[in-house]
């Protein structure tokens, strides 16, 4: 396990850069991770992050479709917010593990 400094705070991350302790997460940290992913974080991004964190804390499955069903954004919009690999990028920025629902 390694550590990284975001917004002046040291957080635990794994080899792929996902935070391993989601309680260390703050919006400021999210903003800096987003910058690393070439994303300029907006309230819409944050709303998606909060949704994912909520699902994760309840132990529920996290899927792209569930984001599409969340009422925050549709799937197309999700792809536009987090281009390329939306689920992986959004999870990283939300400070939760890479979604593993797909076993």
């Amino acid at each position: 396990m390694s550590q990284k400094v975001f917004a002046g705070t040291t957080v635990d991350v794994n080899e792929e850069g996902y935070m391993t302790d989601s309680t260390q997460w703050t919006k400021e940290i999210a903003k800096e991770i987003a910058t690393e992913e070439n994303i300029d974080l907006t309230d819409k991004h944050l709303a998606v992050c909060e949704f994912l964190r909520d699902k994760q804390s309840k132990g529920e499955n996290i899927t792209i479709r569930s984001v599409g069903n969340s009422g925050i954004i549709d799937i197309k919009g999700f792809y536009q917010l987090f281009p390329g690999a939306p689920m992986k990028k959004a999870a990283k920025i939300a400070g939760i593990p890479k979604p593993a629902s797909c076993v």
């Binding site: 132990g59 529920e60 569930s66």
Partner: peptide, 11 residues
């Protein structure tokens, strides 16, 4: 269920 109709259960 959850949004995909899978029953929410303790794993």
């Amino acid at each position: 269920g959850d949004d995909m109709g899978f029953v929410k259960a303790d794993k």
